Amino acid sequence: MPAQARRIALPRAARIGIATAVTGVSFALPLVTAMSAQAHPAPAAAVTAAPAAAPADRAQASSQESYRVVSGDTLSKIADAQHVDGGWQALYDHNREVVGGNPDLIFPGQKLVVAGQAAPAKPAAPAKPAQPSAQDAAPATTAAKPQAQLEVQTEAAKPSAQLQTQLQTAAPTTAVAAVPVAAASTFVAPLANPKLGTAYGVAGSMWASGHHTGQDFVASTGTPLRAVGNGVVVKAGNGGAYGNEVEIKLADGHYAEYAHLSSIGVKIGQTVKAGQQIGLSGATGNVTGPHLHFEIRNGSEYGSDINPVAYLRAHGVAL
């Protein structure tokens, strides 16, 4: 019996040992799992933290980016192309010292800091369409205000019926009276009862320029000559081939030249009025007989002549 009991006890011990071993393994597995979870927390945290850190890095890098202006650029174009958060206003605010006081005036070669750059694929992007719709609604309200103001201003600007009648009655009288007075007081012919002689522009070897630079008026020696318009005398003396000459700078900037005078009645620097006598006609200088050689010039010197008859006629003088 003791031997048999020992044989029976051995299998029991083995069973107990096996059961104990199995139980120990079952306890060990949860323990290993728990320990593994505690020993390796970093990978899970790294996976979670990496995406959050990336946008911040990109934002920091984009805030330091720069853009060099090329021909045809505007702040609006650059802001759209670079996805600048806040548009051209934000871009201008960050580069005010470079651009200056006028945001519409930028030059090729300027280096702009592209700050606050918005990511193109930003999750919040789908929410932006709601913003334009609000902006689209604003102009409709704003546009109505100027229209209302315009209507009010238009009504206020309309003259009364009585004032309209007064204006319509007075206007024709004023217009008719002003034109003849202005024409008569501004320009006159260089002498009374003018009779045209050799015309302006006639070709010939007797003239240094190859053509007649003025308009001749038939006048015997001693015929009074007069200023064709208001002006200042700039020449009064002997002019070589022109003989005794007088030149007047007219109020509109042209010059009136009188040549071959027998006597001069004005001095340099003297102010003259249209119709005022400036001298007497004669035959001094290179001439074949007494007459008035009259020129209109763009400048004071010889060679800047224009057609004097056309000039005087354009100013209301009958020739």
Rank of each mutant, 00 (worst) to 15 (best):
M206G: 13
A192M: 05
K195I: 02
T223P: 08
K158W: 01
V181S: 10
L225C: 09
A161S: 06
Q166S: 15
V179D: 00
P194Q: 10
A192F: 01
A157L: 14
E155K: 11
A227F: 05
G210P: 11
S209Q: 15
N193Q: 10
Q153S: 08
T186N: 06
A189D: 06
A189M: 10
V228I: 07
G201I: 04
G214S: 12
A182P: 00
T169H: 05
K195C: 03
L225R: 07
L163Y: 07
V188E: 00
A199K: 12
T198R: 14
A156Q: 12
W207Q: 04
T165G: 09
V218C: 10
S220L: 13
T223C: 08
F217I: 06
T186L: 10
Q166F: 04
A208M: 10
T165D: 03
Q162C: 07
N193M: 10
A192K: 14
T165Y: 07
P180Y: 11
L196F: 02
P172T: 02
T169M: 06
T221N: 15
T174R: 00
A177W: 00
T213E: 11
M206W: 02
E151F: 01
P180I: 13
K158I: 03
P180R: 12
F217W: 09
P224I: 00
A156L: 07
T213F: 08
A227D: 03
E155S: 13
S185Q: 12
L150D: 04
L167H: 10
A182I: 07
R226P: 04
V176F: 01
Q162L: 14
H211P: 01
N193A: 15
T198D: 08
Q164M: 11
A219F: 06
A177Q: 05
P180S: 14
A192N: 08
G204S: 07
M206S: 12
T213L: 15
Q162A: 13
R226W: 01
T223R: 09
V218E: 15
T198V: 10
Q164S: 12
V176W: 00
A208T: 07
L196N: 06
L225S: 06
P194L: 13
N193P: 01
V152Q: 15
A203V: 07
T174W: 00
Q164T: 06
Q168P: 00
G197S: 14
P159A: 13
S205C: 05
S160C: 10
K195F: 01
A199S: 13
H211Y: 11
S160Y: 04
A199M: 10
